[in-house]
């Protein structure tokens, strides 16, 4: 897509999302933007394994996973200098304060919104 969803060609993006339908959507958006999708991972354990083994360039993290929250993954990514965007069905106020410097996308979000946020954190 030549509109706002391009520009991430070849970028390896980890997707963490516990809802299969939403994960499928994120995957398709990222694939359309030229990314290589790592995952999707439905929980933090699987995501952490993928962070270590697949060394992503960036990540899209759903904050509330059925089994817990995604913060350990965010912590691990931050320590490795890997940028990420946060995705949540909750309000911004529910996001831990120290993670609010990262882009927070409210569900539902547009493909352009997700891609632009990823481009922004990758450029920073």
């Amino acid at each position: 897509m030549a509109d706002g969803t391009g520009g991430l060609e070849g970028c390896r993006v980890l997707v963490v999302e516990d809802e299969a339908m939403v994960a499928m959507l994120v995957e398709d958006i990222l694939a359309d933007a030229g990314c290589r999708v790592i995952g999707p991972a439905p929980n933090a354990e699987e995501a952490l394994r993928l962070v270590r083994e697949a060394a992503p360039d960036a990540a899209s993290l759903d904050i509330n996973l059925g089994s817990g929250e995604v913060y350990p993954v965010a912590e691990e990514l931050a320590s490795r200098g890997v940028p990420f965007v946060l995705v949540s069905g909750y309000d911004r106020e529910n996001v831990l304060a120290r993670y609010r410097r990262w882009p927070i996308l409210q569900k539902p979000f547009t493909p352009e919104g997700l891609v632009a946020a990823l481009r922004r954190v990758l450029a920073a």
Binding site: E19, M21, V22, M24, L25, D28, N64, S88, G89, Y90, D91, N94, Q106, K107, P108, F109
Partner: peptide, 21 residues
């Protein structure tokens, strides 16, 4: 109310995904 909002948002994202698929 917060949970309901979360559920609504997730459902909207699910519907969005169904539409996209």
């Amino acid at each position: 109310i917060n949970e309901l909002n979360h559920r609504v948002k997730n459902t909207l994202a699910t519907v969005q995904s169904i539409a996209a698929q």
